[in-house]
């Protein structure tokens, strides 16, 4: 198990750094940071001075190296746009996004799992068909549009939830429903397929013949195996939620990492965007790492892989 964990951890770190390298080169290829700092219509000499001052005239690979060295020292760089250390910015905005992502995953789970169980217990029933076709439809609804429809509904017609800002728990309810429902189809389909497979296996037949019925059969025998793939998908979805929170945060005016990302992009603030790409990739990689470990812990066969 330790050996397996170590191998996975090395791979995860490697991936996170490759991603940050790619992001660094892509962003620097996309735009010239010296011109952004100098502002529009700046004299060429001014741009040149800034380029030398900030070290933008060095080869990209060396710039990346110094960015990495800073990262190792705990220095995440300075934002040109916000005129603040990037670390401070990220820490300031992180709590909102973390709360949003966690609540969204909770919404996904409480909608997707019961639906999947009910659908799998009666395959091809009316409920099963309805659940599946709702999933197909839900996948075609743009996230931000659903958010706006919620705002129209809940601000005008039935004003129960606040629709803008992040000052209280209630402010997170609508955004997390919008963000959470977007991954219901994937999680539901996967749980349903997994459960159907498990329910037709020999050991369930044995359990049934031993007298297990209904809820107990489901929780004690079937769900365990059916949830294996769901663990991985949930980790992936949680990672994606952090990444796609930018849309929902923008719609509901939450001041989280997504908002910070959007504003930094529009301000062409490479250090912040670069750091956010790295942080999101890192979180994603860590989540996948944890879900791999969790799966290996549940199913020892995986440890050999």
């Amino acid at each position: 198990m330790l050996r397996y964990a170590f191998k996975r951890a090395v791979l995860a770190l490697l991936v996170a750094f490759t991603v940050s390298l790619v992001a660094f080169f892509l962003l620097n290829f996309a735009t010239d940071p010296a011109e952004i700092i100098a502002g529009e219509d700046a004299e060429p000499e001014v741009v040149e001075t800034i380029r030398e001052q900030y070290g933008f005239n060095r080869p990209l690979i060396i710039q990346y190296g110094s960015w990495l060295a800073g990262l190792a020292r705990g220095d995440w760089g300075e934002s040109y746009y916000w005129r603040k250390p990037v670390a401070e910015l990220v820490l300031e905005h992180a709590p909102v996004t973390i709360q949003l992502a966690l609540m969204a995953v909770f919404v996904t789970l409480i909608v997707a799992i019961p639906l999947a169980v009910m659908a799998a217990l009666r395959p091809n029933s009316l409920l099963d068909r309805m659940a599946l076709s709702t999933a197909v439809m839900a996948q075609a609804v743009p996230n931000f549009w659903l958010g706006l429809i919620f705002i129209i509904l809940f601000a005008v017609t039935i004003p129960i939830f606040p629709v803008s800002g992040d000052s209280s728990f209630a402010h997170f309810i609508l955004p997390s429903i919008v963000l959470g429902t977007s991954s219901v189809p994937a999680v539901m389909r996967l749980t349903r397929t997994g459960l159907l497979e498990v329910l037709s296996s020999d050991y369930i037949r044995t359990a049934k013949s031993k007298g297990y019925r209904g809820f107990k059969l489901l929780t004690r025998h079937a769900m365990r195996n059916a949830l294996l793939p769901v663990v991985s998908v949930l980790a992936i979805q949680l990672g994606h939620k952090l990444g796609s929170s930018v849309v929902v945060e923008s719609v509901f005016a939450l001041n989280g990492l997504g908002r910070l990302a959007l504003d930094s992009i529009i301000g062409s603030d490479i250090p912040t965007v670069q750091m956010l790409v790295f942080v999101f990739a890192m979180v994603f990689v860590v989540l996948i790492f944890l879900s791999d470990l969790l799966n290996a812990w549940i199913d020892p066969r995986l440890r050999l892989g």
Binding site: V19, V22, A23, L26, G243, F280, F284, V285
Partner: peptide, 8 residues
């Protein structure tokens, strides 16, 4: 898969 696609 680890890249934050939308952000990038």
């Amino acid at each position: 898969l680890a890249l934050p696609g939308l952000l990038l």
